[in-house]
């Protein structure tokens, strides 16, 4: 049978999870989220979320191997949060690069808010109000 690779691994993962949910050692995860233990769907959803995050990271310029490594380093909770909101979550970076495309108007607004001490965009401004 020649199934696409993601599908085979999904089937394999689900089979493994279905087996292990029968009788098992309780983990610390079960202490933190007891309701999850009895939900056979939870592990499958987590698996799908991870696949999605990995695909989105690749689409945003991360290479395949690194995307896999990064997804593996996430908790289920983090992965599902990112799967839902990766496009809109704040991405902390350094401000000035993203200002280059900004309109002059935005520039001036931020200059004023900097001086008022409401923002801290430019390195050369010192707030006049403390």
């Amino acid at each position: 049978m020649n199934l696409p690779k993601p599908l085979t691994s999904a089937v394999l993962a689900i089979t493994l999870m279905a087996h292990s949910s029968w009788a098992q050692m309780a983990t610390t995860q079960d202490l933190l989220e007891p309701e999850r233990m009895s939900d056979p769907k939870a592990a499958i959803v987590a698996y799908i979320d991870r696949t999605e995050v990995s695909a989105k990271l690749e689409a945003m310029g991360v290479d395949t191997a690194t995307a896999k490594e990064r997804v593996a380093a996430l908790t289920d909770e983090e992965a599902s949060y990112m799967a839902a909101k990766i496009d809109t979550l704040p991405a902390g970076g350094d401000a000035l690069g993203s200002l280059i495309g900004a309109a002059v108007f935005i520039f001036i607004v931020l200059l004023i808010t900097d001086l008022l001490g409401w923002t801290k965009v430019f390195n050369f401004t010192r707030p006049i109000v403390r």
Binding site: L57, A59, M60, G61, V62, T66, E69, R70, A73, L74, T75, E78, A79, Y81, M82, I86, L89, P90, A91, G92, G93, G97, S98
Partner: peptide, 19 residues
Amino acid sequence: RLTLIPERGGTLQSELSAA
């Protein structure tokens, strides 16, 4: 390598924690 998302020009909170 583990934190930057090139197209977003930064890092998500989850990945900062993960790294």
